[in-house]
Simulated assay, not measured.
Amino acid sequence: MPTVHVFARDHINTDEIIPARHLTTDVEAELAPYAMEDYDRTFVRRVKPGDLIVAGADFGCGSSREHAVWALRGAGVGAVIAPNFARIFYRNAINNGFLALECEGIVEAFQDGDEADLDLRGGTITNRRTGVQLTFVPVPQFALDVQRAGGWLEYMREQENQAAQTQAHSAKEHTHA
């Protein structure tokens, strides 16, 4: 059961998600200890794998650094849910197989520490404390496949490997016919 970490302010920028002074690596495990450091120094000690961030509008505004997604994913965040996202953060999230879910009214529906039920295919999130359920556009299977693969590049490598295996299998069948 994921715990919700509420960052209710609008316009949380990438410098707050991962401060520029820590951009000396692209390794998630090395970025993770600094996730949200300038917003909440205790966050990385509290977050558990699969936990959710609920945030205000325009989350991830600022620079285009992918490090923001990597730091959150490295810290164990399963998804960020906000009314909307800065487009470059949203695109980086998709490309890196990280869930950025747009949901109106999310900040008002949760308090820090609440537990949530998240149904990606059904497009709902439910606050277990209050029973309040909100809807968002369900995550398409394609996006779930990219997430499962670990990002767009990894997904494309899987697709290429599957195509090569199918082609090799087809060629083998034709030579034995």
Results as ranks from 00 to 15, higher is better:
R91V: 04
F98Q: 06
I106P: 09
Q159F: 04
E30W: 05
S63D: 08
C103N: 02
G78H: 00
Y34G: 15
A163M: 05
D119K: 04
T135I: 01
Q162E: 14
G150Y: 10
V139K: 06
I12E: 06
E66G: 09
M1K: 05
N161W: 03
H67W: 01
R65W: 01
Y39V: 09
G122F: 04
G151Y: 07
F110D: 14
H67L: 03
G131A: 07
T130M: 07
T24P: 12
A75C: 15
T124A: 12
R73K: 14
G97V: 09
Y34C: 12
A75G: 13
L101R: 05
L144F: 12
I18L: 08
I94Y: 13
E30D: 15
D117G: 04
V47C: 11
V47W: 11
T126D: 08
Q159K: 08
F98S: 14
I81D: 11
S64Y: 03
F136D: 00
Q111P: 07
R91E: 06
N96P: 04
R21S: 15
F85I: 04
G76K: 01
D117W: 01
R73M: 09
R128V: 00
G113A: 10
I12C: 04
R9E: 13
R9C: 01
V44Q: 12
D58E: 02
E108M: 09
T42L: 14
M36W: 13
I125N: 10
T135D: 14
E16W: 05
V4D: 12
M36P: 11
N92L: 02
H174P: 12
I94E: 15
T135F: 07
G122I: 01
I12H: 06
R45V: 00
I88V: 07
G50E: 07
Y90L: 02
D117H: 04
V107T: 05
V137I: 02
A86D: 11
A171M: 08
A164V: 03
M156G: 09
P19F: 03
Q165E: 13
E160H: 07
A8S: 12
L144Y: 11
R148T: 15
R21E: 15
L134V: 00
S170P: 00
F136P: 00
T124G: 13
E66T: 11
R157H: 14
D58K: 00
A55G: 10
N84L: 00
A57G: 08
A29M: 04
H5Q: 06
V4T: 15
D38R: 13
A57F: 00
P2A: 05
I125Y: 07
T175Q: 08
A71H: 08
V146D: 15
G74W: 05
V77C: 10
A75Q: 08
H5C: 11
H169R: 09
E16P: 12
N84P: 02
T124Y: 08
H5F: 09
R148P: 15
V47Y: 05
